[in-house]
């Protein structure tokens, strides 16, 4: 069952990439969730789609873009979008969440226009939306590996600052932690992680892989460190189970990964809800 993944290069690279995003997405997700930015992930993933559509459209006219993985253009769009969101969050200081729907709908709107202009990549589109296990080349994998290393290193280096900022922004600023630059760095990372992860999970489901494992981990963890541990374990299990199931059942991996994730979440909720009932009763 597993051997087949090592017979074909593309499957092997998809599997490896899956292992990496099983770490990356939940890791980023922990900070996204505790900073209440879950919707940001959604907005950025939709802009990634705009970038992908743009790259595919360019590919029809310019050879370079025809061979380039459109995900890179997606990442550039997501990174730009994250900057725009920050600007808008500042403009609408008292209605910060407005920034998200503005960017999200512009992203989809422009994306749909690009898609219509470049009509004829509907099968591709399906795999961008819901994920695919056939999309990863060895070059792509190398890029993913390098980016993963960089992102994990950054999280390691700035762990304490990001933790403090998430817990209590005012106090963090008071003790001299550079909020702006770190926040900026963090949303850039989010854009990159979304770009990487959507190749397997798909654009519509990438935010699920960032939030569902964390939602389950939150019920189990006593400390912030434990939250990372549980999130990554749950993320990894769902990605791997999802990829195998997707291959053998021939369904989109994004769908399977999310289904596994939801199952884990339900089990965790069922297992931990008992505690609450007991407490109420006693």
């Amino acid at each position: 069952m597993i051997e087949v993944f090592f017979q074909y290069d593309f499957l092997r690279y998809s599997l490896f990439t899956g292992v990496l995003i099983g770490i990356l997405a939940p890791l980023t997700g922990v900070f996204i969730v505790v900073r209440r930015l879950s919707l940001l992930a959604d907005a950025l993933s939709h802009i990634t789609l705009t970038g992908i559509a743009f790259s595919l459209l360019l590919g029809r006219y310019i050879n370079f873009f025809a061979v380039l993985n459109p995900v890179y253009m997606g990442m550039i769009f997501a990174a730009t979008g994250s900057l725009l969101i920050e600007r808008l969050r500042h403009t609408y200081r008292f209605y910060r969440e407005l920034a998200i729907p503005i960017i999200l709908s512009s992203g989809i709107g422009i994306g749909v226009v690009f898609i219509s202009l470049a009509d004829g990549f509907t099968t591709d589109l399906f795999s961008y939306l819901f994920g695919s296990i056939a999309a990863i080349s060895s070059t792509d994998f190398t890029v993913v590996l390098v980016l993963t290393t960089v992102v994990v290193a950054i999280f390691g280096l700035f762990y304490k600052e990001l933790f403090f900022l998430s817990f209590d922004e005012e106090q963090a600023v008071i003790s001299g932690i550079p909020r702006r630059s770190l926040h900026f760095l963090f949303i850039l990372i989010t854009a990159v992680v979304i770009g990487i992860s959507m190749q397997i999970v798909g654009i519509l489901l990438v935010s699920a892989l960032m939030t569902l494992p964390v939602a389950a981990a939150m019920r189990l963890a006593a400390s912030f460190k434990q939250m990372f541990f549980y999130s990554v374990v749950i993320g990894e299990v769902s990605v791997l189970a999802g990829i195998f199931a997707a291959f053998h059942l021939d369904v989109a991996p994004g769908g399977m990964i999310v289904v596994v994730n939801v199952l884990i979440l339900l089990i965790v909720l069922a297992a931990t809800s008992e505690k609450i009932l007991n407490r109420k009763g006693g």
């Binding site: 505790v34 304490k160 933790f163 817990f167 209590d168 963090a172 006593a222 912030f224 939250m227």
Partner: peptide, 13 residues
């Protein structure tokens, strides 16, 4: 999800 220890540690960051 942070422990008392983790919260107090922030004071040193």
């Amino acid at each position: 999800p942070a422990t008392v220890f983790e919260v107090v540690a922030m004071g040193l960051y």
